[in-house]
Design a protein around this nucleic acid. Sequence first.
DNA 1: GCCACCCCGATTGTCGACAATTCCACAGGG
DNA 2: CCCTGTGGAATTGTCGACAATCGGGGTGGC
Lengths: 214, 214
Amino acid sequence: MAIHELITGRLRADILDGVFAPGARLVELQLTERYGVGRAAVRSALVELDSEGLVERSANRGATVRRVPVVEAIQLNEARQALESLIAACAATNATEADRHELLAIGTKMRLAVEAESFSDYSDLNRRLHRRLREMSGHPIASELVANLRARSSHHQFRLALLPGRATESLPQHERIIAAVVSGDPDAARGAMWEHLESVVETLRHWQDLGVEI
Amino acid sequence: MAIHELITGRLRADILDGVFAPGARLVELQLTERYGVGRAAVRSALVELDSEGLVERSANRGATVRRVPVVEAIQLNEARQALESLIAACAATNATEADRHELLAIGTKMRLAVEAESFSDYSDLNRRLHRRLREMSGHPIASELVANLRARSSHHQFRLALLPGRATESLPQHERIIAAVVSGDPDAARGAMWEHLESVVETLRHWQDLGVEI
DNA sequence: GCCACCCCGATTGTCGACAATTCCACAGGG
DNA sequence: CCCTGTGGAATTGTCGACAATCGGGGTGGC
């Protein structure tokens, strides 16, 4: 059943890349043509992405890309805060020497990216940092949950990265996380990650007060 | 549609009730007969429960009830610890007057159950306490994640409840959680829940050292 | 002009059949 | 005795067709 997994992955990627925007209808026959597979595979993919929270399916009315209101984005990131703090602590405990060097390299590149004001590079490095921390945490359970939570709030995440001054604000937070993990201090890593995501949640709460819509 | 959701729920319940033990094969045709539906519905249910982590599907080899090794149960409960602490904090913030009275009532019944040594009552009250906290937290994201994590580690949870002295050990922890939520102190509630689940995780780590298998 | 109703197109839900793959048992040779 | 290759049964993967259902547009009545 390789094909079902494949289609799930491609559809997920298309949703995250914005090929299908929030609220867009996902008609089974259209997806059948787009991916060149039968309806069974498309249906499986929709069922799975539904339980992942990326698509919404209502009876006899089809599937749409899930719209995530700001309130939900806040909760998604609160959950991320709890879990990613755990991941940071585990990473601090389990990081190898090679891992530590890679984190320091990422930190250096981040600073350079901020100084060069190349925000797309910074955004890539941000994703890479969090992904590597997940990998080196040795905690697949929390890692998969976080990956899912990030995917579900990706649109808000994207808008947040575009915010002017966002990179300069988050750079020192990232550097503290890296320093704590490199020094092998789980509690400091947990705290630094908590603080970092607290600022994300705070920004989202601010948006909510302003009545921002995605 | 309704039938697919229905079958997913019934199969999930059967797995959690032990009708299908960990490692048991889930043959589509057999499930078709058991639930009186077509293979399409059964397949959807298996796909969904796979992505919930309750069943394992390998290509062309069918589905089985997922076996959860102790090391994974530890991680499931570490993630629970992170998320359920968040829930406790939210519950402390959002609890209504009626909620507070209900929590106190549950606490009283728990103490009575321990004194009467009726452990199945205590186990029911335990589930009820955690469920009510989720409901009153106003945090559906964390609540659903926790419900899933609990389901995935339910077998270990069950064996843990049978441990002699477990109730008397956890009773004061539960009472501290209740007291903190009732007094509306989010940080105290977070800490009390953290401590409570720390003891669960510690017990599981102990099992792991002993080489316990489920 | 406005509202309720009904019919029709579009889309999903369900089922059965066929193709593809895997696992197990068994036979044969080294 | 063990290892390897082959056959068949069991099970899953995929597809197409038909039935069920929903929403929209047009029609008729008021």
